[in-house]
């Protein structure tokens, strides 16, 4: 391809990439702009002075620190418990090669695909009966199981190709099945377990429907729900809306930068397996 043709083609694709990030750049621009500046010069002008009070007042008004803590506790617990559940299931299916494992696996896949709308009312009702309603535990339990459905599916196919000689050797040396799992399978499959934990953490962080239903009180809400509810009430002015958009994006962007390589590699593995 000649240089004359290369540059226009590059321009088109760079423009496309810019359109993808542009909304977030405009939000950043307006989150640090005073309301007076905004109404005088509109959303596209650069701020005349960096103004951080909008972000500060949003932070204190919604107790954003608390939302971050709730999201972190819930997502972190789901990452650990969900991976542990997936590992136990996959150990039985992938290495134990139990009877009818294709059916069992199919069941887990369908459980993960099931729309949450068809579970939400019974979960809400039962959580109320058990006194788990409006507690972070209700979500930790439910999401650990839902995420483990995907984890079981992915991990079973990974463990299915686990080198059997290693396991046989350990068995001959007298290791019981728990020791094989803990001392051999876990250390060898650590990279996959890591990818799963990152996935579970981010997916749970971004969940909306079940947290919306299960966590009505402000004290327990996650970042995603608190922002969704605020938006639904239409009470925010432009500066506050942009502060909310910015603060809501920052953790996601941070995870993305930290885990970028793991994530993009993992997505490809998960989809084509």
């Amino acid at each position: 391809m000649t240089t004359a043709k290369r540059l226009p083609a590059l321009t088109v694709i760079v423009l496309g990439a810019v359109v993808m990030v542009l909304p977030l750049l405009i939000v950043l621009n307006n989150a640090v702009k005073s309301p007076g500046d905004y109404s005088a010069h509109g959303p596209l002008a650069l701020p005349h002075k960096i103004y951080l009070s909008g972000i500060k007042s949003f932070w204190t008004r919604v107790d954003f620190g608390r939302m971050l803590l709730n999201s972190t506790v819930i997502s972190g617990s789901v990452a650990v418990i969900g991976v542990a559940l997936s590992l136990l299931n996959a150990y039985a299916i992938g290495i134990g090669r139990i009877k009818g494992r294709t059916w069992v696996l199919g069941f887990f896949v369908l459980a993960n695909i099931l729309p949450q709308e068809s579970l939400v009312y019974p979960l809400y009702y039962v959580a109320k009966q058990l006194g788990l309603y409006d507690t972070r535990w209700s979500l930790i339990i439910v999401f650990s199981v839902i995420q483990a459905a995907f984890g079981t599916y992915l991990l079973s196919s990974v463990l299915g190709s686990f080198p059997r000689e290693i396991i046989e050797a350990a068995r001959i040396d007298g290791a019981n099945s728990w020791q094989v799992l803990w001392r051999i399978v876990v250390p060898v499959s650590r990279p996959t377990l890591g990818v799963l934990m990152v996935f579970f953490f981010i997916w749970t962080w971004n969940e909306f429907l079940l947290p919306l239903v299960m966590l009505p009180s402000n004290d327990n809400q996650t970042v995603a729900v608190a922002l969704g509810v605020l938006q639904g009430q239409r009470l925010m002015d432009a500066t506050m809306t942009n502060a909310a958009g910015l603060l809501g994006s920052l953790p996601a962007i941070a995870f993305f930068l930290i885990f970028q390589r793991t994530l993009t590699r993992g997505i490809a593995v998960g989809a084509v397996k």
């Binding site: 496309g16 990439a17 810019v18 993808m20 990030v21 909304p23 977030l24 405009i26 939000v27 307006n30 905004y38 109404s39 509109g42 959303p43 596209l44 981010i202 962080w205 971004n206 909306f208 970042v223 995603a224 729900v225 922002l227 969704g228 938006q231 432009a238 809306t241 942009n242 909310a244 958009g245 809501g248 994006s249 996601a252 962007i253 995870f255 993305f256 994530l263 993009t264």
Partner: peptide, 27 residues
């Protein structure tokens, strides 16, 4: 850049876009 919107919580994407698309004062 293309992947970035995928990592945002959908509510954050919603807040961003409902402001960008607002009739008065929207970007």
């Amino acid at each position: 850049c293309f992947y970035l919107p995928q990592v945002l919580p959908i509510t954050v994407a919603g807040i961003v876009w409902s402001w960008v698309l607002a009739p008065e004062g929207g970007a």
